Computed example of a mutant assay.
Amino acid sequence: MNFEPFVTCAVTGAGDTAGKHPDLPVTPVQIAAAAVEAARAGAAVAHIHVRAPETGRGSRRVELYREVVERVRDSGVDVVLNLTAGMGGDLGFGPGETPLELDVEATDMVGPMARLDHIEALRPEICTLDCGSMNFGDGNFVVVNTPEMLRAKARRIMELGVKPELEVFDTGHLWFVEQLVAEGLIAGTPLIQLCTGIPYGAPSDLGTLLAMVNRLPAGSVWSSFAISRMQLPWVAAAALAGGNIRVGLEDNLYLERGVFASNGALVERALEILVRMGASPLGPAEVRARLGLRAPS
C-alpha cells in the first residue's frame, strides 16, 4: 500500500470525446480552468493535452500550450504541470490491400524533435514519453514510437531538464523503459505511468497490473490509470499495489452511471477513496521533492 500517493488529473486528452461530454475542455481557456479546478480539488499534477478550438481535435500547436501554461501559472494556484509529448506519431493505414494509401485524416507523423516543440518552448516540470508503438483500438490506426525515435526524445528531454513520465501501455514497453534506464537516458528516479484498458494494450485487471509492477526498475515512482468505468476502482487498486493515481476526463467521462463528471469531481472522489483507505495524499511541493523536479518558473 502506498500511504502517501499523489493524484494526477488528465483534464481533456486528445481522443474523440469532445462531442460525448457537454463540458469537455476544448479551448485553452477551458483547459487551463480545468487544470486549476483539479488542483483546487486536490490534484498535485495536471496532465495537459490541447485541442484545436475550431474542431475539438487534439493538437500540437505551441501557442495553444503556451496559453494554457500561462493561464494556469497566472491563476496563482500551485500545481505540477505535465505536458503530453505523445502527439505526432499517429499513422492511419489505408484499407484492405492498399495500406500505403494512408488515411490523411487519421495520420499525423512528424519527427521526434518536432514532437517536442512545445517542450522546448515552455520547459514544463514533466512531459510524457510513450515507450512503444501499439495498435490503438480497432481498424487500421497505429501509434508509432520506434526505439530510435524514443531514444532521441529521451536524450533531448534530459538535456532540457524536464522529467519524463514514461508511459507504458503494455509489457514490452516496460522492457524498453529498462533499456532507457540502462543506457543512461533517464536522469534520476524513473517516473512511470502504467496505462491500462486501452485496446489493444494492457487490460485493466489486477493480474496484469501486478505483473507490470513486478517488472518496474528498482526505485521507480509509478502511477496507474484505467479508463471508463474502471477508473475509480483503479484508484484503490493502484494505491494497494504501491502506486500513485491518475483520474480525469481524458480517461473517463462519468462520475457514476448516467452522471457526467467534472475533473474536480473525479479528483475529489479519488481523494475520498484514498483517505478512507488511510492514505495521506501529497501536494505539489511534496511531489516536486519526491521526484526531484525543479521549481516552476
Rank of each mutant, 00 (worst) to 15 (best):
G264S: 01
D170Q: 13
A34D: 11
D138Y: 00
R40L: 15
E148D: 03
G92T: 10
T55S: 10
A270P: 12
A295P: 05
R288G: 04
A236Y: 14
F3K: 15
A236G: 10
A182W: 01
I157F: 10
V287F: 03
D117C: 03
L194Q: 00
G283H: 02
G86H: 12
A39Y: 13
A279C: 15
P233H: 13
V104P: 02
D108L: 14
W222S: 06
L83Y: 08
G89C: 09
P164R: 02
T208A: 04
S224Q: 11
L232T: 15
V143R: 06
E178V: 07
G88D: 10
A10D: 10
S133K: 01
D23G: 15
R61D: 02
G283L: 09
V79I: 08
P112L: 10
L185A: 02
I48G: 02
P22L: 13
R115C: 08
E37N: 14
N252E: 11
Q179F: 03
A39L: 14
G88E: 08
I198V: 11
T189Y: 01
T12W: 09
A279R: 04
V235C: 12
A218R: 12
M158Y: 08
M212C: 07
I198E: 02
T55Q: 05
R40K: 15
I119W: 05
R51E: 05
V144P: 05
E4Q: 14
D138L: 03
N140A: 05
E67C: 07
A202N: 05
G76C: 01
I192P: 11
P95A: 07
V72L: 01
D103Y: 15
G188E: 09
G42W: 15
D16N: 04
T128Y: 04
V50Q: 01
V110H: 05
V275T: 10
V11Q: 07
V72Y: 07
N2V: 12
P203C: 00
L160N: 00
L293N: 01
M158V: 09
Q179S: 05
I31Q: 14
Q193P: 08
R229T: 11
V62W: 04
A52N: 13
L102Q: 12
L255T: 05
